[in-house]
Computed example of a mutant assay.
Amino acid sequence: MLIITRNDHDYGPFDEREVARYVEEGRLLLHDKARDADTGREGIVRDFLMAKGLRPHVRNNGTLGQQLDYVGREFIFPRESMRRTNLFEDKRMLILAVVGLSLSFIMMMPVGGYLAFYVVSLYFATIWGMFFYYMFRTRQVNLKTTVSTFFLTQLGVFIIFSGLNQLNFFYVFTHAPFPLSIVGYILGVGLTEEFAKQVPLYILQNRSREPMLPQTMVYYGLMAGIAFGVFEGVQYQTQVNIQADYTTAFVLNIARLTSLPFLHAVWAGIGGYFIGMAGLYPRYRKALCTLAAVIPATLHGLYDSFAGVMYLVALAVAVVSVLLLMGYLERSGAIRQRLRN
C-alpha cells in the first residue's frame, strides 16, 4: 500500500495496482512522491511500482488532432492575454523583452563609429539599471528621476572631462613610478571622477521636496556610477582597447561594459550613502561630505593603481568596495541612531 504526497498533503493509502491505474489515467505521475504505508520507506511512485513489476503507460486521450482540438486555440495563441493592456501589466515580461530584444533592434539602426559604441554601452547600462532598480529602489525612487540622474551625470562628465579635469594638479602623478603613482590615482583620477558622479546627487538632494533616505541616495549613486561607466567605457573602447590585439581588445571591451561600470556604480553608491546621511544630519555635514569624497576616491584610486602592477590587489580592493557598501547599508539604522544623539 502506498501513500501519495502532493503539495505537502498525503493521499491514500492505495494499492499498487490502483496507483498504476491512476498513472495510466494521468491522475498520478510516476515522479509523484510516495511512501510505503507499512514501512514508511520514501521514494517516488515509479520506484515502488517497478519493485512490484508494474510498468504503467499513460493512455493518450484521443488522436493528435483530437488533443489539439481539446486544448483549444486560445491555449496555443492566447490572443486575449497578448492584448496591449495586459502585456504592460506584466512587468517581468516587459523587463525580459527589453533585456532580450533591445540589442536586436539596435542592430537595425544605421549607427556606426563612436555612436555604435555608445548605443551598445547604453544597452548594458540599461540592464545594470534594471538590476539596481529591482535590488535597491526605495519608496522615494521614481523612473523620471532615475533617467534624469543618469543623463545629468553624463552631461556633467562630458563637461568636466572636456578639459576641466586637467585643472587637477595631481593628474601628473599618474605618470610617476609606482607607488608614487598612487597619489595621482587617488587625488587626481579618483577624486575628480567621484566628484563628477556626485554633482548630480547633490543637485537631486537640494531640489528634493522631502528628506532623501541614504538608501535612496545609494540607488541614485549607483545610477550615476553606471552613467559614468558608459562614458569611460566608450572612451576606452574607441581610443585604448582598439590598439590591442583582437583577443585582448575583446576581453577589455566586455570588461568595460560589465564589471568596470559596476565598480563605478559601487563607488558612487558609497558616496551617495554619505551624501544621504549628510542631508539627514546637517550638524555632521562637513565630516559626512568629506567621507563621501575621500572613501570612494581612495578605493577608486587604489584599484586603478594596482590594476596594472598587482591585479590581485586591485581585485581585493574591488571586493572590499562591495563589502563596504553592503556594510554601510546593513549598519544604516545604527549609524542614524548615533547621529541623532
Rank of each mutant, 00 (worst) to 15 (best):
F178Q: 05
P179T: 14
S181A: 08
S181Y: 02
S181K: 07
I182T: 11
V183D: 10
V183L: 13
V183A: 05
G184Y: 02
G188R: 00
V189G: 01
G190W: 01
T192R: 00
T192W: 01
F195T: 12
A196H: 01
Q198T: 15
V199T: 03
P200Q: 04
L201F: 08
L201C: 13
N206A: 15
N206G: 11
R207D: 04
S208D: 05
S208K: 14
S208C: 13
E210P: 09
E210L: 08
P211D: 15
P211V: 08
M217G: 12
M217L: 14
V218N: 04
Y219H: 05
Y219Q: 15
Y220S: 03
G225F: 03
G225K: 02
G225V: 06
I226W: 01
I226Q: 02
G229M: 03
G229H: 02
G229R: 01
G229D: 03
F231H: 00
E232C: 04
E232S: 08
E232W: 03
V234E: 00
Q235L: 13
Q235K: 12
Q235A: 07
Y236V: 06
Q237G: 04
Q237S: 12
Q237T: 14
T238I: 11
Q239K: 07
V240E: 11
N241W: 05
I242W: 10
Q243T: 06
A244Q: 14
F250W: 07
F250I: 09
F250Q: 09
V251I: 14
I254E: 14
I254G: 07
L257R: 11
L257C: 05
T258H: 09
S259H: 13
P261T: 06
P261G: 12
L263M: 15
H264W: 03
H264P: 01
H264M: 06
V266A: 02
V266T: 14
W267T: 05
G269N: 13
G272N: 07
F274Y: 13
I275Y: 10
I275N: 08
M277W: 11
M277C: 13
A278F: 15
A278K: 15
G279I: 07
L280C: 15
Y281W: 07
Y281A: 06
R285F: 07
L291Q: 11
L291A: 15
A293Q: 05
A293H: 08
V294C: 08
I295E: 10
P296K: 13
P296M: 08
P296F: 06
